[in-house]
Structure formats: C-alpha cells, structure tokens
Write a protein that binds this DNA or RNA. Sequence first.
DNA 1: CAAATCCCAAGTAAATTACTAGGCTTTTTC
DNA 2: GAAAAAGCCTAGTAATTTACTTGGGATTTG
Lengths: 149, 149
Amino acid sequence: MKFTTKSEYGLKAVLNLAENFGKGPIPIHDIAENHGISENYLEQLLSTLRRAGLVKSVRGAQGGYMLASSPKEITVGEIIRILEGSIAPKKCVDDENPNACNRAENCAARMVWEKLKDSVSEVLDSITLDDMCREARKMNSTYSLMYYI
Amino acid sequence: MKFTTKSEYGLKAVLNLAENFGKGPIPIHDIAENHGISENYLEQLLSTLRRAGLVKSVRGAQGGYMLASSPKEITVGEIIRILEGSIAPKKCVDDENPNACNRAENCAARMVWEKLKDSVSEVLDSITLDDMCREARKMNSTYSLMYYI
DNA sequence: CAAATCCCAAGTAAATTACTAGGCTTTTTC
DNA sequence: GAAAAAGCCTAGTAATTTACTTGGGATTTG
C-alpha cells in the first residue's frame, strides 16, 4: 500500500509551483534541483499534469511551469489520481477499470477495498495546495520553505 | 497506491478459515483450490501469518491451518499489516522504519501521508473477520460462500 | 543565431512481486 | 512400519513495475 515516487515528486513540484503562484513560470531545472529529483523524470511527471490540465507550461527561454488555477482550487487528490492513474487499492474497485472481477457480487473482500478507496478519497480530496502552503509556512523552519518541502 | 496480491490472497484465505472456525484444521491445498491461488505461494503467506501468531497450524495428515483466535478478535488491519509489512503510504511515515527523512520537520507533504495512514488504519482496524463473514452471508449468492470469496 | 527551455519517444537498470522447485519433518492411516 | 498427507523452509526465477536515462526536436528570448 505504497505510493510511488511519482506522487511524492509530483506533489513536491506542484507545491513548489503553488508557493510561486502568480510569479510567472518556474523552470523544471530549478524545481528538480530544489528537491534533488532527476530533471528528466520530473519533466515526464509535469508533462502528465500538463496534459491533464492541472499545470500550464511556457516554452523557450524564461519559460517553465505554473499552476493552471489557484492553489485553493487544486486538491492533492487530483494530483495523485493523475500521476498514479488511480487511488483504488485494488483494480476491482477502480472506476476507470470496468473489467472488475466477475465474483464482485459475492466478494466480501471487495467491501474492504471499497471502504478504503472512499476513505482515501475523502482525505486526499479535502486537502488543497493552499492548505499545504499554509502548513509549510507554519513550520517555522530555519530553511527556506521552497527548498525543503 | 495498490495493495499486492499478498493482501488479497491472505485475506481470502483467512476469511476461509474464519468461515470454518471451530471445525478443525483446513489444509492449504483446499484453500488454494477454492480461490485459484498457487498452493506454494499461499503456503508462504500463511507461514508468515503463523509466525505472527495470527493463525495456528497442525502438521501431518488431517492437518492444516486454523485461526489462532475468534473471528471477532481479528481485524483486517492486523492481517494486512503482517502481510504487506506496513500500511504506511510512504516509508517516511512508517513507524517500524525509524530512518525517516531528515527534512521531516519541514515537510508539508509528510502531513498528507500521515493523514492517509491514520485514515487507512482506522478503516482497516475497524473491520473484523466476523464482520466480513456476516457480509458474505448477507450476499444471497447462488454460489457456496466459501468458494467464491 | 545561440541559449534556454519545454516536448516527446524509446531504451534500460533496478527493484519488487509473484511465483516455482524441491527437499525435509511430522502425523495419521493401513 | 511404510506410505500418504500434510506443514516447514530456503533458494531460485520469471514477470512486472518503477525510476530513471538518452537524445533529438520545437519554441522563445536576448
């Protein structure tokens, strides 16, 4: 029941964008460096988020990435669903995946996966990027917030 | 954010034992056949659960596995924690794993993983095997309950 | 035009998962 | 007391997924 680094890197990167919301595009290079992530790998993740409409990009020199909407309007759930493909703990309860197992009607285990999925959804959909930015600011760190997310 | 087949097979097998609680040992062979699971693989899973004290085994002919305590006293959380190692969505919030990342105090993402872990724990720890057995009985199936979990 | 940047597809190394194989021990049954 | 039915255990391996790397192309700025 682990999330992959996609969620971790993606969330950190997008939070980085949230901290700089309204300040123009941030290049991948900077984000990757801030968090010690492979630049090319992060590019793939941000590209996925762009295709999903969550972030925007500006090409060319002085280009980079920025949020497509305000940090208050983007939830962690959206980000993670896009990057992981789904948050369902099992394929059989994945809405995008209609080929659920044919024993679904007789499966007591499925009830468990359903409950889990609902619970995870509720948590992730209730946290916005703005919430996370505030949380980050609350931590009265000696480090720059941006650099140690 | 997927659970592996360990959780699925393990849960189904243990539920099979719960359905037969008090009726003596059930051989792996039968459980594996019921659910279409590899016998040797299931053996590894049940062995893990046995070492953790959740199930008991009886060797020799007419032997097999049985629950170590009543279905009311065993939660899905216990089973899954033992089989998956942990239910933490990230290593950095895994209690068993004390080498959390050194930026923990300054990490807003960590808050997300913590909330998730708590939520998943709450759901899984609140479901007992007895609950699942009842759920299974409620499904007025044309199939034998035991065989199509 | 050169540099900075995003865009994209294909390849690959590492890790994890899901087994398989096979020999050993214990207990029951005939 | 031998054979069969079970669990016990370790090592190997195939398949899948993850986490990259490589490298060429397109776009924009100065």
